[in-house]
Write a protein that binds this DNA or RNA. Structure first.
Lengths: 131, 131
DNA sequence: TATAATAACAGTAATCATTACTGATATATG
DNA sequence: CATATATCAGTAATGATTACTGTTATTATA
């Protein structure tokens, strides 16, 4: 795996954001430094970086668009059903791995894990609704 | 909302299956009774039925294809990462709504619910691996 | 440091699931 | 039964993502 300047820029941009950009957003931002970069290159790199475990790819069913996360530590996500923002939950109460054992009761098959995210309205959208 | 024969057939097919067919699968099956039916009609009806609360639409991020469920009672799902089958979990230990309150601790925003499904290897794929 | 092997690139075309559009047809209601 | 309109079949368009291709950049090695 060679380390191109484009890949460095993509990784660096992802590192600079605590939200979870889409490939399109990565593209438009990295484009400022590399005007010729192509969207395919962004996708390929994001997927390779995810494959290598350096970033995480999140596919939220509701959104239909993949989001990429520089933070590979296990943590929970919240998706605002109003503005579609993806927000990290505080790390305190986030170990829900026990539900795998719970779900395995009476199930004939091997449960290896789960996909989970929370839905609702974020602070920003709540404030706007008050007006 | 008028009740067309096509919509009846779509609903009836969905009722006959305990798995969770995709629009494509519904299409190929209903096509036997209505050779001229179009895929767009299937999608439109499935979405309208879901909108009306008569069926449920599931968007599993890993799969990228929507699945439709005649059973609207709340229950949990298992997705086989080997054959992509969607299987209902037994109803006993399936109320995980308490995790919403857990996740809300320390989060500034309104958590209204969550999306959850389990991943692993189904019985059929486990048996095949033994050989 | 020069060179050769090849991973990665930009650009473009293709794919796949899904939705939107259009004129014709079927369904429900008065 | 007639009228209004929801739904239809067929087709085109969309949007996210992936695949292809000939060229360029990176890395290992001599």
């Amino acid at each position: 795996m060679k380390f191109s300047r484009q890949r460095a820029a993509i990784l660096s941009f992802l590192q600079s954001r605590k939200d979870h950009p889409t490939a399109e957003l990565v593209y438009t931002n990295v484009k400022e430094e590399f005007p010729n970069i192509s969207l395919g290159t962004v996708y390929r790199n994001l997927n390779q970086l995810a494959e290598a475990g350096m970033i995480t790819k999140h596919s939220f069913g509701d959104l239909g668009i993949d989001h990429f996360d520089y933070n590979t530590n296990p943590h929970q996500h919240f998706v605002c059903s109003c503005c579609n923002a993806v927000i990290d939950l505080p790390a305190e109460h986030n170990d829900f791995s026990f539900i795998d054992k719970e779900a395995a009761k009476g199930f004939d098959g091997l449960i290896q894990g789960h996909r989970l995210y929370f839905c609702g309205i974020c602070r920003g959208c709540l404030d706007q609704r008050e007006n």
